[in-house]
Amino acid sequence: MVRSESSHEAREVLDADDVQRALTRIAHEVLERNKGAHSVVLLGIPSRGVPLAQRLAARIGEVEGRDVPFGSLDITMFRDDLRLRPARGLGRTELPGGGIDDAVVVLVDDVLYSGRTIRAALDALSELGRPQSVQLAVLVDRGHRQFPIRADYVGKNLPTSTRETVQVLVSELDGSDAVLIGGTADDDPADPTREGRGSV
């Protein structure tokens, strides 16, 4: 796992409270923009997008007073760099009971970087149904896009150099919430391990 090796001089840019506040704000923005949570479905991209989607769904549910459907969307099979590295295990795709047809799907990921993950997610989504619209929520936007993709909801804009790594920790998987930034020599924004998902 590249992330942990490269984080030896990592610096914390968001602490646990900052992450909580960012998620709360995103939850309210989702409600504001969609005029309520009606037909909103949150889909997290494994691995760290999934707990984030779950938390956003819980927060939106608290405000609205009803359960908001959430699930996960694995994009491994749709990556454009599959042939560049050995085959790897798959994450889970799990849609809520109602499916995604005619829903407002909010994709949730930890870091937005090259945009390739989201491109793959849009492809994966089209195999599963036809949402009314698709929005994107990310905890961190670190720039360096390689596709015409932008996020609708951003927890924190983090201007970075391509030589740095951004690592998002979530308590469900890592024991605590934080966003760390560290230095490394590798500078390929297309490398998915740099988007904060070293374990895929």
Binding site: G89, G91, T93, E94, D123, L128
Partner: peptide
């Protein structure tokens, strides 16, 4: 275990309307 776990995820594809992956 990797094969069986991967098969577990792929089994879900068979339940979908579009039973195809571009891989």
């Amino acid at each position: 275990t990797l094969i069986l776990d991967t098969a577990d995820e792929l089994a879900r594809v068979s339940d979908r309307p579009v039973k195809k992956l571009p891989t």
